[in-house]
Design a protein around this nucleic acid. Structure first.
Lengths: 265, 265
DNA sequence: TGCTCTATATCGATC
DNA sequence: GATCGATGTAGAGCA
């Protein structure tokens, strides 16, 4: 059997089991009444109470109460677990460097200790991510716009790599920013940086009159020195946008295409 | 004992224990070989392997492998846990609405099931940097205000102990409330309670026109001799404050001093 | 409820 | 190692 389990062990018993489990590289689950203290980038203290402590062989440590998705305290992978008995009580300590951080759990009582040697897959296949959205657009560019032709993904620019770069039906360059979910104004800012970078790269001659029928009356106030519609277009592809984001899109003359990462059924 | 624990239970046995644990509002830890699937904003599948499943009475569900700080799959608080035996195997499902999401864990074998009735505190005091902030201020009172003199820390009052108590250049009493990070209106309320308590304690003439007296014009810097200014001053020391908090500070005639818990480099 | 911002964010890719 | 961007981010504050 790959699982060892002790109920209401003494502190010293718990220590033995813990050390064995560390040795074996087991995944440890520890129920008990304890206090927790953390010192590092910040610091925290947690008074006595019942908690679940998880110790992973990769160095991760988690302290969970009965509430919340997040652990109340934790240590990331790469930390080092040590256990000891101090003043007759089990103490579990997880430390790491850079930054120097220490998590200490002091047990008043250990209710249950279980350790499992883990076998089997740990690779998750996730669908519906931004990666899926990119794939979907590259396979069916018409979803973005009739006549859109993707030319490059992760195309570098002075503002960093853009998600998709291509040309529209008129041959005008298009920057496409992909978001897998509803977005706020920050995404518009990101798109704007790419577009600005490309305009600078292309020299930004003001030849224009692309007659973008859908750009809702690009008012004269927003742009710094581009009096006419931009040579480089920006399209934000996301399931939806916030009101504020829509305003900023309109200000800059960008378009929004409503698209989910995966087709709806 | 508040902990129940079963080793290598049958699927039906595990089901009973799980249902009892849900009924009691226990925190559940479940070791076993299982597959996991998730459907919602995205979708994912995880093949057979040994994992630790945590089920919380607030609806949170976590699936952990032996690696990483993050659960490989999860459900946030507010979800609903259900357990059943299908095809002779234990199935745990956690669902929520808005968005509609379902997490399903199908067990090939349950190695260990533990459930604990949780008692005790769950409130974490993230104090560390505030301690640093206090130290920093005590060592360099001028950071708060020119001429400020700390007199006492954790000075007791009817509203509880205040972070720092002192006097300003004019000898007026000052309550300093420390926060290690950006704060909202609640911190202003806390500061106000301390100030009110001190005013009562000092028997200060009831110039409690604090709500309408001097509003914004007072704050600033040259509070050398404001006849209207309250006898007891309040200063909130925090890296930054929300807009709402700033309004309340102004309303009460308190000051905000922007200060990080630790010096910036 | 929805929106915005912060986090001991975590995590991966890239330079 | 440092920085940048995505995340089923989670969680708090605020309208």
């Amino acid at each position: 059997m790959t699982v060892t389990s002790v109920h209401d062990p003494s502190h010293r018993e718990a220590l033995w089991e813990l050390e064995d489990a560390f040795e074996r590289g087991d995944l440890v689950s520890l129920f008990g009444r304890c206090t927790v203290s953390y010192e590092g980038r910040a610091a925290s203290d947690l008074g006595p109470g019942d908690r679940l402590v998880v110790l992973k062989p990769d160095g991760a440590a988690l302290v969970h109460t009965d509430e919340g998705r997040q652990p109340v305290n934790w240590q990331p992978p790469g930390s080092e677990h040590r256990a000891a008995v101090r003043d007759g009580r089990l103490r579990v300590r997880s430390t790491r460097d850079n930054p120097d951080e220490t998590l200490t759990v002091r047990f008043a009582a250990v209710h249950q200790l279980s350790a499992m040697t883990v076998t089997g897959g740990r690779d998750l296949t996730l669908h519906g991510s931004e990666e899926d959205l990119r794939t979907r657009i590259l396979e069916r560019p018409g979803l973005v716009e009739a006549g859109f032709e993707p030319r490059e993904t992760e195309r570098p620019s002075s503002a960093g790599p853009m998600d998709v770069f291509g040309v529209d039906a008129d041959g005008a360059p298009v920057v496409v920013e992909l978001k897998r979910r509803r977005v706020g104004p920050d995404a518009v800012g990101q798109l704007a940086r790419y577009v600005r970078a490309l305009r600078e790269e292309f020299g930004t001659e003001a030849s224009d009159s692309e007659t973008n029928g859908e750009t809702a009356g690009n008012g004269g106030d927003g742009e710094t020195d581009n009096a006419d519609s931009p040579e480089v277009r920006g399209i934000l592809v996301a399931p939806s946008v916030t009101d504020r984001a829509a305003e900023r899109l309109a200000d800059r003359g960008f378009d929004h295409v409503a698209l989910e990462p995966t087709p709806d059924e």
